[in-house]
Design a protein around this nucleic acid. Structure first.
Lengths: 204, 204
DNA sequence: ACATAAATTTGGACAATGTCCAAATAAAAT
DNA sequence: ATTTTATTTGGACATTGTCCAAATTTATGT
């Protein structure tokens, strides 16, 4: 493995383990048995290194495609499961989310676009679910509320889990928050939708 | 004002402005025109100082009492409004929440108790609202889901607002998340409850 | 009023952090 | 083989939180 890739993968490993802010450049370098300025050669600042991890996560998430036309409650929720699994792989980023937004210009600038895309997709998914007879939402406003609530869960579930659900394993944590999203949708589900929800929750 | 109080109030002001991690002891001392080791005399470590702010917030929140017996949808939501206003006063703490839980032993130990109390209160509030005919929730499981969802919103609303709702003023942000809580309750509201919700949301 | 004790304030040191740069080494190209 | 490019290195810098002995101020007892 080339030096750059060794740095990236070990950084992710150690950041996930101890938190980005608690792993110094010297500690990372020592673990890799290289010198700090060797890291600097590939990543001029720590922000550049963290930004690289963020790009990797984005790339991973972009591989998760959802067919909006043929969406179902099942595929909608299983999609979130995949995203949550990626979140776990890069949990160091999500646990320092607010920090990074304040401090890392590269990440915060890019995130604005990502965030907009996400809520657009989410909104259109929900509307398709309504059209396809899985959801029954008359008021457009309720769609916006659902978008807002689900976006908040998707962004902070892992932070909450790290603080409050540490007794659960990662699978259990994901199950909990997928269930939460399902139950928030629950009041609006049609019979067809409700059946799928049961199925998904049992299959988690 | 005594030195200790000057330190606490200026620290809160600067931490809220720039973020706890971005205000150094030297900068704080310089602003107060005292020396760093003078701060150290009252607060041996920065963690001690931050913990003091956390205690102050706890104290402020504990002044918000809710009469569980005579609770209504209105008092329930207005209660959250008060808590959210306190959150804004001490927003530096909530914006560094995950960080503090990992790093500051004093805060994290105390928080476990607070968290438990909060969800207990929340659960009993919802049950009372059911008994009083504001909510219609047959399945006990749905109460747990609501507790979980509302707790997550209450803990991270200000982080989300800092990233995504910066175009809104503080009042608007609070209104947004109170509305969100209201709308999550909405599917379970009785007619009586629904009327109160409208009233509260209009009056925000 | 004076001497003693306690509380407060100070300056300077420490190790650890991220960043930076000139020089040394290794690899590739001509 | 020589030049050019890519990679790696050691040492410096300013900044951070923390610490401590000494100096100063304030309070207390006689």
């Amino acid at each position: 493995m080339k030096t750059e890739e060794k740095i990236v993968s070990k950084a992710l490993e150690m950041y996930n383990e101890k938190g980005i802010e608690y792993v110094g450049m010297r500690e990372l370098a020592a673990t890799l048995n290289i010198r700090v300025s060797n890291i600097t050669y590939y990543f001029p600042t720590k922000d550049h290194l963290v930004n690289r991890l963020s790009l990797d996560l984005n790339q991973l998430n972009s591989q998760i495609v959802i067919d909006n036309e043929n969406i179902t409650i099942e595929s909608f929720l299983l999609n979130f499961k995949k995203i949550f699994q990626n979140h776990i792989k890069y949990r160091c980023l999500l646990l320092s989310f607010v920090h990074l937004m304040e401090q890392n210009k590269m990440i915060s600038v890019r995130y604005k676009q990502t965030e907009h895309d996400r809520s657009t997709t989410l909104r259109s998914n929900l509307k398709t679910l309504v059209k396809a007879g899985y959801l029954n939402i008359e008021d457009e406003k309720n769609i916006e509320i659902l978008v807002s609530a689900i976006a908040l869960i998707a962004r902070f579930w892992i932070s909450e889990a790290a603080v409050s659900l540490r007794h659960l394993k990662q699978d259990g944590q994901i199950r909990h928050y997928i269930t939460l999203i399902g139950c928030i949708l629950s009041p609006y589900l049609t019979l067809k939708g409700r059946g799928q929800l049961e199925k998904v929750l049992n299959g988690l």
